[in-house]
Amino acid sequence: MSRFQELAFTPLVKQHQQEHGSRRQYERMAEHSPSGSTLGPDEQTFIGLRDSFYMASVSETGWPYVQHRGGPKGFVHPIDSSLIGFADLRGNKQYISLGNFDHDPRVALFFMDYPNQTRLKILGRVEVHEHDSKAPALIESFRPADKSSVVERVILVHVEGFDWNCPQHITPRYTVEEFQEALAPLTQKLAKLDEENAKLREKLRSLK
């Protein structure tokens, strides 16, 4: 059984899987799943290409809180096979996630690739570096290219389990950059046609 299944498939979860007919399927999957919690090359590459993710934490009142984090591609750094990190930039100063980490360092992360309908789920424990001796070097190493962004701290996540989801029910969505990349051949073709039309119009004017 994978480490993710060990953490997520509680007795009550298994009970519902049994009731709804999926328990045997996951038992078969567990027989062939890697037992460790380390991220392989595919997982690390996938994380390094993302420009956003969702992070869930648990508050002192027991309520879950989900936060969206975004940045340029590669703003989440796979440091090694069991550790990832990112610069925590100054935002609306609510600090809900930060307070939740003081209460419980466990987090769940969702990394989404909407165009390819792919999702990577990670369970881990957070390590915050802000006022400690390691913070200055970490903040500098994670500082984004945009110098106007204020890095308040670096958040490291020690991976305890991960799982890939099937594409079912993931609605494809595209960023402006992804649209521009997909439309680049058509844009170039249109530009070439405009250039040819301009030359033809100039030639027609010269014949009058």
Rank of each mutant, 00 (worst) to 15 (best):
G99I: 09
R153P: 03
E130G: 00
N100D: 07
A137W: 04
Q168Y: 09
R125K: 15
L89H: 10
A108L: 03
S82H: 11
D88Q: 10
F179H: 15
D88M: 10
E181G: 02
E195W: 10
H169W: 07
R125V: 12
L98Q: 10
D113Q: 03
N92Y: 11
H169P: 00
D132C: 03
I139S: 05
D80I: 02
H68D: 01
E160L: 12
K93L: 13
K199Q: 15
G74A: 07
Y114S: 00
A198D: 10
V128M: 13
V154C: 05
V150M: 11
W164D: 01
V176G: 04
K189A: 15
L190E: 11
L186D: 14
R125T: 13
Q188F: 07
D104V: 07
N92E: 14
Y95G: 01
R143Y: 11
L123D: 01
Y174R: 14
Q168D: 01
S81C: 08
P105G: 12
A135T: 03
F110E: 00
D194T: 07
G85E: 10
P78I: 09
G85S: 10
G71L: 06
E177A: 12
V154S: 04
E160F: 05
F162Y: 14
L138V: 02
T61M: 05
E160P: 04
T61R: 06
F111N: 01
W63L: 14
S82V: 03
S133N: 04
N165K: 04
N100M: 05
V150Y: 13
H77L: 13
Y114L: 05
D113E: 08
K199L: 12
A145Q: 08
S81L: 03
F86W: 14
V151G: 08
D132E: 04
I84C: 01
A182E: 13
I79F: 11
V157S: 03
A184T: 06
D80H: 05
N100S: 08
E178K: 11
D132A: 04
V66D: 01
K93I: 04
R153M: 07
E152L: 15
V154K: 07
F75T: 01
H131A: 05
V176F: 14
Y174P: 03
A182R: 14
Q180P: 00
K121T: 00
F101I: 13
I79A: 11
S149I: 09
V157K: 05
V151R: 12
L200M: 13
T171G: 01
T171C: 02
E152W: 05
S59F: 13
F110P: 00
